[in-house]
Design a protein around this nucleic acid. Structure first.
Lengths: 159, 159
DNA sequence: TCTAGTCAAGAGTATTTTGGTCGGAGACTA
DNA sequence: TAGTCTCCGACCAAAATACTCTTGACTAGA
């Protein structure tokens, strides 16, 4: 419940990676291709390809060109790519319930006596605000890829 | 994306209805049965039955007894039933990503180089806080079903 | 005690969504 | 211009979800 889809996960992962390559500390900006990201993160190449295509279509990234040395770059600065935009590109308009999209409202035969629509929209609003307030930049937690989370390891390795 | 499942919708609808019957203005508290709710809201009887069973198993509602005049009542006051509890009963533990549940962490082969886990958990936390802060009572917005929320509109959300 | 109304629980089916695959078309390099 | 390498869009399979059916147990009231 409330789970991101794999595609959304992959998208965030990829964007974060690209952001690090282009804007990270000591970064040497360059074009990155699908294969590189897929191998880096161990995700199915073809699926990631599709995800990136979608992101490109929504201008979050730009396909540099085809052929050898082709690839993608971010379409804007990391701080200008919000989590909400990413999710929306991948999954279509966000909404806790169908009736938050106007075009579906007519199909809901309980609109009239639906008392939960309003409070639901309120929740949804807050969630959206949250997702809109967070960008790829916020995911660029410096360089260290290895952050030991103590809950993984049984005994106090953290020190 | 981020959508509630139908079952979750039905659960909220049912709880809100029961709350109105028991605690609403001028309410005459009584037991309500599955059929009544299903007809009231036009949802498949059998499916709703299963949803209510689940809620009962989680003590959010109580089955009054079998047989004629049987039915359900709320297990506690509306303000003590949070949205998060409802969702969790229906859909199991909530979490934006698998690795928020400890038992799945080991199965994720990219834990080591996963840079998005931490920020994702942060988002998730906020969402959960939101859902925990809202209860069935908040859904008892007296009788008027149509309240237009202006914040849905694109402009000036944050104001 | 018999009947009808109700909750309880399981298995089974259909439909939608999601994850993943394939075969090209275009573009660059040599 | 041949040979790669890349993006791209249509396609397929598997999984999750929504919904149904059947059976059973229990209770109130005739």
């Amino acid at each position: 419940m409330l789970k991101f889809s794999k595609k959304a996960d992959y998208a965030l992962l990829a964007l974060q990676y690209m952001a690090m390559v282009q804007y990270g500390i000591n970064a040497v900006p360059r074009v990155v291709n699908t294969k590189e990201i897929a191998e880096e993160h161990n995700i199915p190449l073809e699926l990631l390809a599709k995800v990136l295509q979608t992101l490109a279509r929504h201008q979050l990234i730009e396909s540099h060109h085809n052929g050898p040395k082709g690839g993608y770059v971010l379409g804007r600065e990391p701080k200008d790519i919000t989590i909400a935009q990413v999710l929306e590109s991948i999954e279509g308009p966000l909404g806790l319930t169908d009736c938050s999209q106007e075009k579906y409202q007519s199909t809901c035969d309980q609109m009239a006596r639906c008392n939960i629509r309003t409070p639901l929209l309120k929740i949804q609003d807050s969630v959206l605000q949250l997702l809109n307030g967070m960008s790829i930049e916020d995911m660029m937690v410096d360089e260290s890829p290895f952050v030991i989370i103590e809950s993984v390891k049984p005994e106090g390795v953290s020190s």
